[in-house]
Design a protein around this nucleic acid. Sequence first.
DNA 1: ATGAAAGCGCTAACAT
DNA 2: ATGTTAGCGCTTTCAT
Lengths: 332, 332
Amino acid sequence: MKKKSIKDIAQELGLSKTTVSFVLNNKGDEKNISKKTQEKILAYVREVNYQPNQIAKSLKKGTTHTIGYLVPDISNPFYAKIGRLIEDVLADKGYHLLIGSTDEKQEKEDALLNMFVNRQVDGLILASTFENLGMLKTLSAQRFPMVFFDREHPDFIGNYILVENKNAMKEAVNTAINKGAKKIGLLSITPNIYSLKLRIDGYRESLVENQLNVDEDLMRIVDNSRIKESTQEELNYLMDKDVDAVVFTNNQITALALWAMNINHKDKIDSVRFVSFDNLDLFDYSNPKVNSIAQPIDSIANHLVDILHEVMQSTERVSKRIVLEPKLIERL
Amino acid sequence: MKKKSIKDIAQELGLSKTTVSFVLNNKGDEKNISKKTQEKILAYVREVNYQPNQIAKSLKKGTTHTIGYLVPDISNPFYAKIGRLIEDVLADKGYHLLIGSTDEKQEKEDALLNMFVNRQVDGLILASTFENLGMLKTLSAQRFPMVFFDREHPDFIGNYILVENKNAMKEAVNTAINKGAKKIGLLSITPNIYSLKLRIDGYRESLVENQLNVDEDLMRIVDNSRIKESTQEELNYLMDKDVDAVVFTNNQITALALWAMNINHKDKIDSVRFVSFDNLDLFDYSNPKVNSIAQPIDSIANHLVDILHEVMQSTERVSKRIVLEPKLIERL
DNA sequence: ATGAAAGCGCTAACAT
DNA sequence: ATGTTAGCGCTTTCAT
């Protein structure tokens, strides 16, 4: 038994597709369809459990009620949580999420962007690598509804929901210094992303302000392509240099360092201070404890959807840049 | 400038839609389109960066190259990771994921199932709550391609990728007992799911086999609707009873208990033994350490896609039940 | 109060 | 070697 279409329903009831369509779309009254016809249709539709084909609807109306969610890695807790929050608020509006992970690779990002566009998503929420501005600029020129978060690119004007990076990092490092840290290393993934650069700047500024030596040798960049091993090596390097604190620029690298720490430097777990941009629930019970800069994910998610919604409505060009305040969570 | 359609391309090149369509779908040779025409089309298409409308394609072909991924919570690391793995292998085949989180609520699950079906997804990968067998059975009767994982329902025949629950749990508890645990509590979310029941059975069997007292009072079920507070209360209860080990039936509850432990029972962190079904990376550096039963997520993801693919191909009814072996990770 | 018909962008059987 | 045409399932304008 094939799926029923509006045509089937109409035939079986001896009505026209038009009438059925009107009623199904709650335009029965407006279109002067008699009460009994309306009831007849609704009853029948319920009886046979008719389900409209959204693809056909989408083709006709040019809108899919689908939003693309493009991030480096949907399994990263930060993106997963924001994804979940977005999913919930979008679902209330009848929108759903098509997802895509880029692994920070431009080719993947481009392919996914094309995919999203071809599938006629109504809008895009993205943590872009910003390596191919061309494509993004083209979309932007076509007024394709997009809202960016987590990262920004100075040369790309668009809608951004961001958090304060530099000052938040500076304050977190200040706190560590006030608590006694004197030799502070830094571990970061490749800072090809502007936000990461800002975080590193914050670290630098704190050292300067506190008259600590800014030692480039203590700022270690891990090799993204072999991130686990590289983190381990660089952490070892820092521990050998006897740093009393390590600053991390995102949650992924902090988690890896926690792992490496438990393997190679158990003895120093209680004497070293970890400071991480991005929070993870596990920092509450990790060993060592971590002071973290928590991004306000609920607020980020809400703003993302709000702005996207606004952009999808309005015909004028919108370019908002909203910067939210992260919160330092002190655990040690 | 509106998006170009095949019709535009055809007109601008003085050809028919058919010819253009054939060439775009690599049927140029097969359909005897001359080399020069083919080249002309391809060059032009590249020049204007024509992008086919997948919605139109989908309507015509009845296939969307979209798979629905329905889970309790996409931000749970277990589902997020499997989601990511699936995304990657599906992307290679040109498929993409539409996601939906149910929060274990039947209404949400039903709504999402309808949504997926209306959007004509080609298949479904689901960790169902199995509270509404009716809907699932209807889909199954229509041969809708579905593969289930993480949970199963004895009354529902379908394709399942599962892990061994009972024996894995039994062995994990045995290990704890061998290492000295004598009074072992259990903390679980509401075991309305068959897999959870099996895990609890495993715990029970281990106690029996080891001639330990099976005390129902030490088997605590938390209230899902206020899971954080409830976990805290129940953990407190068990600690007051002086258990020397606690068994958890999934990662979510273990993570919450770790948090509660660090708030309320710091003193006992080194004397209590945690055993968790499901692994989390953070168990490597959590405090207390946790022995965990790690599900083989890569293998689960691969099987899910393989079987789904198989089901989508074949016209016969397939019902495979694949049970994978989890692995006990000992950390203490 | 209801229906006929066109059309969204694409594919493919069937001409020519 | 290329074109004509019908049709996927729906919405909507314009008739009646």
